[in-house]
Simulated assay, not measured.
Amino acid sequence: MSRHGGARRGGPHPHGAMPGMATAAELARLRAARGAGFDALFLRLMVAHHRGAVSVATDALSGCRDTLVSEMANDVIAQQSAEIGRMERLRASR
């Protein structure tokens, strides 16, 4: 089974359980896409992926008492949210 972070690390979530992870079918469509169709699909999938990271980081903050974990989760939220904004602007400009 494929796991986020690699099977050797023993990550806790199979890809299908991670919010924002592209399905095998979506990745196949991306591999087959070209030009503007590739760009649009790539941006759509990446926005979903980044939103998933924000969701996981937000969940990590819930009841968290570890300062380092909280700092990292807040950094993920800030950085991924900024990337989402950039990608949404790219999508709107096409």
Rank of each mutant, 00 (worst) to 15 (best):
R91H: 08
M46I: 14
T67L: 09
R31Y: 10
S81I: 00
A28Y: 12
G63L: 01
A25N: 04
A60W: 02
E71N: 06
V56A: 04
G63T: 01
I77M: 08
R86V: 15
M87D: 02
G20C: 10
A22D: 08
A33R: 10
G52D: 03
T23Y: 14
D66A: 04
H49K: 03
A36P: 04
G52S: 03
A36S: 12
R91D: 05
G5L: 09
R9M: 15
E83N: 11
A7Q: 15
S70K: 05
V76S: 01
R94L: 08
I77V: 13
V54Y: 04
A48Y: 07
G85I: 01
A33H: 03
H13W: 15
A78Q: 11
R51M: 08
H13S: 09
H49C: 00
M1R: 14
G85N: 07
R89E: 02
L41D: 07
S55D: 06
N74G: 00
H4K: 15
D59Q: 07
A60G: 11
R91I: 09
V47T: 02
G5V: 04
H13I: 00
E88K: 03
L61N: 00
M87L: 12
G16Q: 06
T67G: 12
M46W: 13
F42R: 12
R91S: 10
M21L: 02
L30E: 00
H15P: 11
E83V: 10
Q80M: 00
A24Q: 10
L30R: 06
T67A: 12
A36N: 05
S62A: 05
I84F: 14
T23K: 12
D66I: 04
A36V: 08
E26V: 06
G52V: 03
F42A: 08
A82I: 13
H4I: 15
G63Q: 00
D59G: 08
G10D: 07
N74H: 07
R34D: 11
G16I: 12
A7I: 15
A22P: 15
L41V: 07
E71G: 07
V47E: 02
S93C: 05
L27M: 11
G6K: 09
S62F: 06
S70C: 08
R86E: 14
R65C: 07
G16Y: 10
L30M: 12
L45C: 04
R44A: 13
G6P: 09
R34N: 11
L68K: 14
A60I: 00
S62I: 01
F42K: 11
H49G: 05
A78D: 11
A32G: 12
M46H: 14
L61F: 04
L90V: 11
G10L: 14
G63C: 03
I84G: 08
G6D: 08
A92R: 13
E88F: 09
S55P: 02
R34L: 05
R34S: 14
L30Q: 06
R34C: 12
S70L: 02
R8T: 13
A17G: 02
A32S: 11
A78G: 03
R31F: 05
G85M: 09
P12N: 05
R31N: 10
